[in-house]
Nucleic acid binder design. Structure first.
Lengths: 128, 128
DNA sequence: CCCGCTATTGATAATCGTTGTCAAAAGCCT
DNA sequence: AGGCTTTTGACAACGATTATCAATAGCGGG
């Protein structure tokens, strides 16, 4: 059975307030600055749980850090991420889903999944 | 100036013999088993260099390990990767390139790049 | 062919993100 | 409130990667 602790809720809330992807370390620091005495290990565990439950998306940054983001829809989707400020848009693309599945099938691959993320500079950062 | 050492060549060769993505650690172990006294740090450096020069592709595994693969064409391309045995096919998809660029533009994002990788089970592993 | 300069190597230590440990604290049910 | 279990959190452990730095070995010139 899963218990409802203020720590899990705090992580959920803090993640929800962020517009883009954050690392566990960053989120932990942010929570501590807000006065929460939450532990680092707990943040890691909470984020891992959220990702498993489908309430958060995760990806590996180029530097090998795991990044998380609250995701609004539990439907399958991808991200358009600002590589300067981290802002993220959720995007859907049925065409691309089909392409991925078809490509895998054409090569005889089964059980296809994919990673598709687009990185750029958001309007604000493009202007700055 | 860049020097041509047998170590760099050994890494290049070892990488070329692999059908799929390998980690630096794995490649190092493999080289040592073959009798080479090459050092771990050197393998890391050689792989990083190859990636910068465009002679190898790199990606981050789900576990946060950096994986490398020799790439035949220096043209932009993506990968279809067997998640059981690591075998990899290089794939090109102009449609998807355009989609990524168009999607970024539609949201006002500039300087778009993307990560697109498809994972599945290759024919051999699907059968097994 | 040998010298010497400098890039490279490699053993080891250091770093960094992440996970395991385990006693103490807090949920949840009755 | 009581009791049973999950969760927490400080800390140690871990694994991948990078920095350190003296020893080594390309490579160009004489």
């Amino acid at each position: 059975m899963k218990r409802n602790t203020w720590q899990r809720q705090a992580v959920r809330d803090a993640l929800g307030e962020r517009p883009g992807f954050v690392s566990a370390q960053e989120l932990h620091a942010s929570l501590r600055e807000s006065g929460s005495p939450i532990g680092l290990a707990t943040v890691y565990r909470a984020l891992a749980d959220l990702a498993v439950e489908g309430d958060a998306d995760s990806l590996q940054s180029d530097e090998g850090e795991a990044l998380y983001r609250a995701c609004a829809s539990s439907r399958h989707h991808h991200h358009l991420i600002c590589r300067s400020c981290g802002r993220t848009e959720e995007i859907e693309a049925d065409d691309v889903e089909e392409w991925a599945a078809a490509t895998a099938a054409r090569h005889g691959y089964t059980e296809a999944r994919h990673i598709i993320d687009v990185f750029g500079l958001c309007p604000a950062c493009s202007a700055g």
